[in-house]
Design a protein around this nucleic acid. Sequence first.
DNA 1: CTGAAAGCGCTTACAG
DNA 2: CTGAAAGCGCTTACAG
Lengths: 329, 329
Amino acid sequence: MAGKITMDDIARMAGVTKSTVSRYFNGGSVKESTRERIQEIIEEYNYEPNAFARLKARESNVIGVVVPTLNSKITSRVVTSIGRYLRDQGYETLIKDSDHSTELELKNLQRLITLNVDGILFSAINITEEHRSLIQNSPIPVVVLAQDYPQGICVVYDDYGAGRTMGEYIGSRSRGPVGYMGVEESDEAVGVTRKQGVLDGLKKCSAAEVILAAGDYSYESGVRMARELLDQGPLGAIICATDRLAFGAYRVLEERGLQAGKDVSVVGFGGYDESTLLKPPLTTLQFDSYGLGYLGAETLLKRTRGEPVPKKQIVDFHMIEGNSVIKEK
Amino acid sequence: MAGKITMDDIARMAGVTKSTVSRYFNGGSVKESTRERIQEIIEEYNYEPNAFARLKARESNVIGVVVPTLNSKITSRVVTSIGRYLRDQGYETLIKDSDHSTELELKNLQRLITLNVDGILFSAINITEEHRSLIQNSPIPVVVLAQDYPQGICVVYDDYGAGRTMGEYIGSRSRGPVGYMGVEESDEAVGVTRKQGVLDGLKKCSAAEVILAAGDYSYESGVRMARELLDQGPLGAIICATDRLAFGAYRVLEERGLQAGKDVSVVGFGGYDESTLLKPPLTTLQFDSYGLGYLGAETLLKRTRGEPVPKKQIVDFHMIEGNSVIKEK
DNA sequence: CTGAAAGCGCTTACAG
DNA sequence: CTGAAAGCGCTTACAG
């Protein structure tokens, strides 16, 4: 039975009309005594209004979130953080998974718009012209997460700063050529910005030659790139665009009888839980994913209220030092 | 503009009424020529009907999923799998995260019921009396995931079988006392069933003494339990209820100058990605999470159509052999 | 403070 | 094959 009760049922039982019950929920004026009567009935039946039937309401109190995948520790952190913040603020979170498909990203965005949610947190692998046009024309506020978006509001990781920090870190303590295992440039944040940071950081601190490789985000891709780089001769250091790629590098080093932190320095980005489990533990830069989610949600809510928000916000990172970098003597 | 268009707008542009457009979407009879006209307009405006405005429809075509947390590789796999299946079948997936809170689990369940989704996939840490009563009285079909639920329909991992397999595996190749690092018994599936399997398997194949420890699911808990066990004397093997706990055990072994696979056997359950990265790689049992999600979704859809479904379905597991078990000579 | 009525975007018998 | 009308569960001016 529970759940098939409507606002009208509650109203009847409380001896009022649904208008009054609606006001009860939406902060309209209701006499203290009726308020109590309504409350009793509600508690007895465990009633909650159907959030999606508020077709005529100004706001739906639901925020949509679209993520490129759910199969990622990072995304999990971001979404968990968003959910916590929104819940505290009395909002529903509607999560849509694009499962690595650009087509689905577009569809999900479109769908959230027609669902008339109050706002959208949008995270995509890369933002195409179509994404842009959809976001631009959206009657609903959209905040873009983890990708730069000059046409609108975004909250991003400090990819350039992180890259640069890592570049300087390695540049100042490594000798010999440096290999960089990156990802395709279609991913702005990681493929372009992070890489540029690394290159600039290295250049500032060392004259070492840099050899570039590029692939996708998979473990296998890491293995392939590491082989490709090492086949070209000995390396002083390998900088990997993500920890997962570094896992692949570890595997290849082992195959070749080399040891990270002794024969060659290896570093990554991400600060995955498993990186501390490696032997030796990986030195890596961790981004503040919880901060990203929190800030994104907060910013979006401000937007929906028409409050001013920064066009772009950058969240911090910090280094987790493992033992994978050759010690200076 | 995109998104503010309603079915009525489309209808007007196509020179028909919204009744006809509605029929177009729901498979009613529409003349070929009008069908084409409607289709054109829809494509031009990228229109999609608002799924949540189907207040009067028999079905909403949305399935709710409640998960205990999003911060888990296992859950991610399950949810991704559910999403894929449902999408193929033309359903929306609405994900609700309980964030480790029993109270939220109840709330999420309640909310999905009042949202009048077509069905609910429910996964909870443990199922209390309150959960039971809510599910029992739900006017909407519910399929319980990953926990036994004799009062209704469930899809579960083979916790007993997996435990038993692992128990026999270790029992037949280990000498000396066996330590078991488990979790609290409030978690039926892992805390009780899996443990019982392990104990039965061990008993069948060995007369070795078994020392039990229990804690929560965290890495720190694994560290604590491993210390506790090893403090009581040397062990031939440590069986960990999850891989994460095994990570803690590895850490303690290292502290004490012991090596997994040489001085003591260590095994886990879960088949986490990172387990193969350990040194030595962990021998572990992996459950078929994708299968669980897929089967759960399929079963739920059958239920919504009134088709008969098994009361309980058990998904498979398989062993991933690492190098963490002492070789027999 | 409260109710009657119109409306949100859609669906569904019922006529024609 | 198509439209007019009633209705889904809720909200919102508008009277009183």
